[in-house]
Amino acid sequence: TDVTFHVNGRNLHLKGADEELLRRIEELIRRGADIEELEKAVKEWEK
């Protein structure tokens, strides 16, 4: 799945995201995470 999140005026584009990653990103956004936290979560998922 390709999806782009718009967070605090910045874009986080995910290519090939699975349901697990999407749920994790949505949860972080609900908690008020900043873009750096979201990018870190994506990097951890990519490993």
Results as ranks from 00 to 15, higher is better:
E44Q: 11
E27V: 07
R24T: 13
E20R: 12
G9Y: 01
K43I: 13
E19I: 11
I25K: 00
L21F: 07
L38K: 00
L38T: 01
D34G: 09
N11V: 15
R30P: 01
R10W: 07
E19P: 14
A33E: 07
R10A: 14
I25W: 01
L12F: 15
N8W: 01
L22C: 05
T1H: 12
V3T: 03
K47S: 11
A33C: 14
E19C: 14
H13P: 02
R10G: 14
E37A: 10
W45D: 03
D34E: 12
A41V: 14
H13F: 07
L21G: 02
E20P: 11
R23F: 08
D34H: 07
E26M: 13
E19N: 12
G9P: 00
T4R: 05
V42T: 03
W45N: 05
W45L: 04
I25M: 07
K47Q: 13
T4D: 15
K43E: 13
A17R: 02
L12Q: 00
K15A: 04
D2Y: 04
R23I: 08
E37P: 02
H13L: 07
E26C: 13
E44M: 09
R10H: 15
L22V: 15
E20F: 13
E26S: 09
A33Y: 12
N11F: 14
N11Y: 15
I25G: 00
I29E: 01
V7H: 04
L14A: 01
F5S: 13
E39D: 05
G9I: 02
I29H: 03
L21I: 15
E19G: 09
K15Q: 08
L28T: 02
L14C: 01
N8G: 09
G9D: 05
V7T: 03
W45E: 03
K40R: 12
D18C: 07
G9W: 01
L38E: 00
E20V: 11
I29K: 01
R24Y: 14
H13E: 09
R31V: 09
W45S: 07
R10N: 13
E37K: 08
I35Y: 15
I29V: 06
K15S: 09
A41F: 14
V3P: 15
G32S: 04
L28V: 02
A17I: 10
L21E: 01
D18R: 04
E26R: 14
D34M: 07
V42C: 04
R31A: 12
A33P: 02
W45C: 05
I35M: 11
L22F: 04
G9R: 00
I29P: 00
G32L: 04
R24N: 10
E46R: 09
K15F: 10
L12R: 00
G9F: 01
E37R: 09
I25L: 09
R30Q: 13
L28I: 03
L12D: 00
L12N: 00
R30C: 14
E39F: 08
I29R: 01
D2S: 03
T4V: 14
I25S: 00
T1W: 14
D34A: 06
G16A: 08
L28A: 07
G16V: 05
R31S: 13
N8Y: 02
I25Q: 00
L14M: 04
L21P: 00
G9V: 02
G16W: 05
R24A: 13
L21Q: 04
R23G: 08
R31K: 13
K15G: 03
